[in-house]
């Protein structure tokens, strides 16, 4: 195993209530097999080297080739913040693209630049994270965090053998690790997870959130406390940092952690490797987003919109639950690519 990756997400999308998940999406519909124009599309992400965005690039790049789009892919390699993203956006807008696709690193900070683009007749799209001012956004493709949080609760309950092992007399304690409670994607996942547990799993007792500040060792120390203080049965690690901390804490706890199940998020190579390897502290399930599909779809929508066709304003993609039993070929499909 080489580099283990995880994502440093900060401020992102608006409330999940906006998400109309009922929309069906038309993957593979031939929208522009012979594009009359060669469009230039700027695509700006944050933390570009992150496998999540690298995977998004794979989808976007392939679709751009297919549709004869001149794709300008940009983003600070490692920093996920408006401070580094704004200059990149300005550079890209200076190229006068036909459309700008952006994963805003802050719900508000990018709005003036988006508005400026719209004023100069550049169509603006969101991918993954969204702007707080959606009137300027033609279309937004993103993962469904609510569905993902619920899927995580179900996967963890299954892994913990909720039906047999958790009872009114002997409740199962569960810890939730998150990098920051102000990251809206993560907050949405946590909220959905908690709602699902409350609704479906009354014999699960949720401890207070572990806030790891993107730091595996902080997560590890906190999970070690939870293991020591409670009869911990499961951990929901909302991001790679917390999965890493949870794994290390369970490994270090030895026999005390032997029965603890961990559900992680995102199909990072190290997450999948941990799940496949099995053993103490390995992941029992991974809730994965579909960044490659997000990349494909947003390019498709951008071209369609530029051609004057109607595109969905919000398209949420369901998260996929990956299990140790998932065939290797499927795991390979959903694993995020390394930079």
């Amino acid at each position: 195993m080489k580099s283990r990756s995880w994502r440093l997400t900060k401020g992102v999308a608006i409330a999940s209530t906006l998400m109309a998940s009922s929309l069906t999406f038309a993957v593979g519909a031939p929208m522009a097999s012979a594009a009359p124009h060669r469009y230039t599309i700027g695509f700006v992400v944050g933390a570009e080297a992150d496998p999540f965005f690298q995977s998004m690039y794979v989808g976007a790049h392939a679709e751009a080739l297919k549709l004869h789009v001149n794709l300008v892919w940009q983003g600070d390699p490692v920093d996920y913040s408006p401070a580094t993203q704004i200059p990149v956006v300005q550079q890209v807008l200076a190229l006068k693209p036909n459309a700008l696709i952006i994963a805003p690193t802050d719900t508000k900070a990018l709005n003036p630049y988006i508005a400026a683009a719209v004023r100069s007749h550049i169509k603006v799209f969101n991918v993954d994270s969204g702007s707080s001012f959606q009137r300027n956004i033609t279309s937004w493709v993103t993962g469904n965090n609510t569905q993902g949080g619920k899927a995580a609760a179900d996967a963890l309950a299954t892994a913990m053998h909720y039906a047999t092992d958790c009872t009114a007399a002997k409740k199962c304690d569960v810890a939730i690790g998150v990098s920051s409670l102000t990251t809206s994607t993560d907050a949405a996942r946590v909220a959905a997870f908690k709602a699902e547990v409350k609704a479906k799993y009354p014999y699960i007792e949720m401890l207070n959130d572990v806030v790891s500040q993107s730091q595996p060792s902080v997560a590890q120390s906190a999970f070690a406390q939870d293991i020591s203080a409670h009869n911990l049965a499961g951990i929901f690690a909302v991001d790679g940092t917390d999965a890493e901390g949870a794994t290390a804490a369970v490994k270090a706890a030895g026999s005390a952690g032997a029965s603890i199940k961990i559900v992680g998020y995102d199909g990072y190579a190290n997450n999948i490797a941990s799940m496949v390897a099995g053993g103490l502290g390995s992941l029992s399930a991974i809730i994965s987003q579909q960044p490659t599909l997000e990349g494909t779809l947003i390019i498709k929508y951008a071209v369609a919109a530029l051609q004057g066709k109607k595109v969905p304003h919000l398209q949420t993609l369901p998260n996929i639950t990956l299990l140790p039993s998932t065939p290797a070929s499927v795991l390979a499909k959903y694993q995020y690519v390394a930079s």
């Binding site: 195993m1 580099s3 283990r4 990756s5 995880w6 440093l8 933390a47 080297a49 992150d50 496998p51 390699p77 490692v78 920093d79 996920y80 595996p216 790679g240 890493e244 190290n270 930079s339």
Partner: peptide, 12 residues
């Protein structure tokens, strides 16, 4: 540290 690690944990 960020540049060297690409913002990801290094090694395992």
């Amino acid at each position: 540290a960020l540049v060297i690690s690409h913002g990801a944990p290094v090694g395992y």
